[in-house]
Amino acid sequence: MQIHAVHGDITEQQVDAVVNAANNAMRGGGGVDGAIHRAGGPAVLADCIERFPDGLATGDAGWTVAGDLPARWVIHTVGPNRHAGQTDRGLLVSCYRRCLEVADELGAASVAFPLISAGVYGWPKQDAVAAAVETLRSTPTRVREARIVAFDAPTYALVDAALSPTG
């Protein structure tokens, strides 16, 4: 699988699936979650309500339609919230692994990932990048292209450096 760093807006990525860093309730929120729900429109929320009436566990993933997004699917995953005491790195690794498993179930060849848990959930960015890159590189998958999409330049620089041959 090819892994690329992208500086941009995840809601504008033309891929088979975009990953949403969701909350447990699966009803929209702030950050990436809010942006995906706004850009995808009401179809994303309606499908979340239908598919996930009880929400989703931390570290797990599931899919919905993408609504008005240029992607075909949204793969929702719930990252660990360090501010709530969820400090097990295994939960963060599980998010990336489960997203790839869901992508394989869907037949998605290209997937755009945000940096899961590195925003309002307080995971240290350097470790969030390392967890993303290590897990994407080591997880067997039929996905051919993974993008780690960074909204701001400093985060993009961290991801790009981690993906470099010497990173």
Rank of each mutant, 00 (worst) to 15 (best):
M1G: 13
A5M: 08
A5Y: 04
D9A: 02
D9F: 03
D9M: 03
V15F: 02
A17N: 04
V18Y: 06
V19L: 11
N23R: 08
N23M: 01
A25Y: 11
G31D: 10
A35M: 00
I36Y: 05
I36K: 04
H37F: 01
R38P: 04
P42M: 03
V44L: 01
L45V: 00
F52W: 07
F52M: 12
D54G: 09
G55M: 07
G55N: 06
L56G: 06
W63I: 03
T64I: 08
P70N: 01
T77A: 10
T77H: 03
P80V: 05
N81I: 03
R82K: 11
T87I: 08
D88I: 04
S94A: 15
R97H: 14
R97T: 15
L100D: 09
L100S: 00
E101Y: 04
A103M: 01
D104W: 09
E105H: 12
A109F: 12
A109Q: 14
F113A: 06
F113R: 00
I116M: 07
S117I: 07
A118E: 12
G119I: 13
Y121P: 03
Y121F: 15
W123F: 10
Q126W: 11
A128E: 11
A128W: 11
L136H: 11
L136N: 08
R137L: 13
S138E: 14
S138A: 15
E145H: 10
R147I: 04
P154T: 10
L158N: 08
V159W: 13
A161C: 09
G167C: 01
